[in-house]
Simulated scan of single mutants.
Amino acid sequence: MAKPGRPGAGNSKKKGPSKGTGGHGRKALEGRGPTPKAEDRSWHVAGKRKAAQERYVAAGGKPKPTQQNLNRSARSKQADDTETVTGRNSVLEALRAKIPATALYVAQRVEMDDRVKEMLSIATHREIPVLEVTRPELDRMAGFDGVHQGVALKVPPYRYAHPQDLLEEVFADGGTPLLVALDGVTDPRNLGAIIRSTAAFGGQGVIVPQRRSAGVTSAAWKTSAGAAARVPVALASNLTATLKEFKKQGVFVLGLDGDGDVSLPALELADRPVVVVCGSEGKGLSRLVTETCDQIVSIPISQATESLNAGIATSVALYQIATMRAAQAG
C-alpha cells in the first residue's frame, strides 16, 4: 500500500535486490570482475579451439600458430623492407661491390657458368648463407615480370647519398662532374636504365627527388645490370633547390625537352661540370625545374616519332656529352 504523500511509492517486503536496480549492498559493490577472454571461456568457440589445441599438443603434436601470431607474422613481413636483386649480372655486381647481402638463393640444378661460380666463391668467402630453392620459389621472389636466371640475392634497403656529398666527392677526386637528375620519372626500369647509361658514359651519379619518383628497387637493380652497385643515387628533398645550389657551385644545368632552344649536336660547354635533367615521357620537365635550367636542349628525332622515353633520351644526351669531352681532351 502506498504511503500518504508519496504517490506511486511501493512498500514491498521482498528481500534482496529489486528487479532493474542493479543490486544493492555488498553484492553490487563487488561486481563480477573483468570479462574473461574469449579463449578462456570454455563454451566459446575460441575456448573450444584452445582446449582442442592443448589436447593436440599433449598428445605430442606441434602447436599450430594462433591468429594473433599470424597477424604478428604478417606485420613482420610488411616491415621487412629488404630488396631482392635478381639476374646473374646484377647479383654478381652486388656481391663484387660488397653490399651487405643477407642470403644468396640458387635454383636447384642451376647451370654453373663462370658468373655463378664466382657468386658462390664470394658468398662463401664472406660467409653469406647460400640457399638452394626451387625455380617456382625464385619466380615468386623475382615478381611477375622478373627474370632471375636461377639466382637471387637479398640485400638491405638502398642507402641513398646526399646530393651535395655526391658533388663534393666528384670535385675532391679531381673529376669534372657529369650527373643526371630525374624530374617525375616514376618507372623503376627507366631509373635502372639511366643508372646503367650513367655508368657507361662516365657519369658519377644520379639524383632523384624524394617525392613522385622511382626509387632503387629490385626492378631498378635488375634493369641497371648491376650498375646500381657502382653508381651512387642521391635523394633530393627538393630538386629545384638542389639544382639552384649546384648552379652556385659552377654546375651547368642542362634540361632535356622536345621543344628545347638548342639542338643537342650544337651543345657547347659540355666540358664544364654538367647535370643533365630529364623529365617524364608524358609531362616532361616541371615548370619550376624548367625555369631553373641554364639551357633547354632538344634531341633531333624523326617526325614519325613523337618522343623518346626518359631512359633513351638520357642515354643519347650522355653519349653526346661524353663524345664532346673525349674530342676536346684529344
Rank of each mutant, 00 (worst) to 15 (best):
L308H: 07
W43R: 13
K27E: 13
K283C: 05
A101R: 00
A220E: 07
Q210H: 10
G16F: 11
K50D: 08
V45E: 13
K283M: 09
K244D: 10
G10P: 03
G47T: 06
V185C: 03
A161F: 02
V133G: 10
G31R: 14
K283A: 12
R55T: 11
G143F: 08
A161Y: 01
A97H: 02
D80G: 07
A214H: 04
V289I: 13
V216G: 02
A310K: 10
K248Y: 05
A200P: 10
L264S: 04
A79W: 12
T186V: 15
S237D: 12
G175Y: 12
Q249W: 00
V276E: 05
V208R: 00
P63K: 14
Q249H: 05
G202Y: 04
V276C: 09
R212D: 13
H162N: 13
E245R: 12
V233L: 02
S307I: 06
D165P: 00
G226M: 03
V110A: 15
G282I: 11
A193D: 02
V57R: 09
P100S: 04
A74E: 12
V216W: 02
I195D: 05
Y319H: 13
S213R: 10
Q295G: 01
L182E: 00
P100Q: 07
K19V: 14
G330V: 13
A38T: 09
E118H: 04
L267Y: 05
Q249N: 07
S302I: 08
P177V: 01
G175H: 15
L308R: 05
E137C: 07
A107H: 02
G87A: 10
H125Q: 15
L179H: 01
T305Q: 14
S121F: 11
G174E: 08
E30C: 06
A9D: 10
A101D: 00
P232R: 00
P273M: 08
T305K: 12
P17E: 03
A51W: 02
S76W: 05
V91M: 04
D271R: 08
V251N: 01
R88N: 07
Y56W: 09
A38Y: 04
L288N: 12
L269H: 15
G60E: 06
R211L: 11
V206S: 00
E291H: 13
V253M: 08
L138A: 04
A28Y: 09
K248T: 14
A266E: 13
V91A: 04
P4E: 11
D114F: 07
S286F: 06
L92H: 09
T223I: 14
A52V: 13
E132A: 07
Y319W: 14
Q67E: 14
V180N: 03
P65A: 11
I207F: 03
K154N: 08
P156N: 08
A214T: 08
L92V: 11
D80V: 05
E306R: 13
V277C: 06
L191T: 03
A229E: 00
V130K: 09
A220G: 15
K62P: 06
K117R: 15
L254W: 01
G31Q: 09
T290P: 02
N69P: 02
R325H: 10
L191A: 03
G192Y: 06
Q303G: 15
E111T: 14
